[in-house]
Amino acid sequence: MKSIKNHLSLVIALLSILFSIQVFFVVDRSIDAYKENLANNYSVIAVSQKRLSNHDILSINKIISNVEELSPDSVIKRLNSNMQSKNVELLKLSLPKFYKITLTSYPSPEEVSRLTADLLRNSSITKVENFSSTHSTTYKLLLLFKNVVAIFALVVIVVTLLLIFKELKIWQYKHNERMSIMGLFGAALWLRSAVLFRLAIVDALIASFLAFGIFIYISSSPWVLQQFSNIGISVVIFNPLEDFAILLGVALLISTLLASLIVIGHKEEV
């Protein structure tokens, strides 16, 4: 029981840090997936006085992934009932050309402005419709969501680190006496601190494997998968290899740092 208590305080603190980090990863991935989704549905319309080749438009800005010329037929269809076919052809020739420009990724408002300016720099293009108002609102909402989650994760990490530092004081008190006694009999530093590092590493492993279990469960939960499917995105909630390696690395780093601080702060008491 006492042994479980010894481990529990650090394991819980480490687990909350790992949980915050993984939640941030999931949110980041969700936002990226959602942005990709938005990028597929978002396009800019450019109006040109003369026909431009796809290459001409693609070379204007690297963010442009595809160009599609819009057919004027739908507009002319509404007018042509009383027009002779010859006049319709003439009208077609005199109408400006409309291009639907799709992009490689969901752009930031700055990228939209830059793209608009780049397009208008072409003398043939007279107008660009970038739907900036709708785009900007969606983008800012995504950014806000990401920032709120990042701040939340940061606050959790800071608070938990403060708790860990309090734990450090308790550990320091608990281990100082044993380390001093071992020192009196000539134990080398590595031997005096071996118990401490073993405890720190075991706690890091426990916290990492608990986080692994929790996120494996979450990532296979039908309810969670349904939520992502509802917003039309597919996200890797937990990558058992990469994410686990990161979480294990963070847990080991924090716990061994904690142990090192205790060893550095140790003063021999006689």
Binding site: G183, L184, F185, G186, A187, A188
Partner: peptide
């Protein structure tokens, strides 16, 4: 010092 202490009993 550690070496010395290994040969002392306190």
């Amino acid at each position: 010092l550690n070496f010395l202490r290994r040969h002392i009993g306190i």
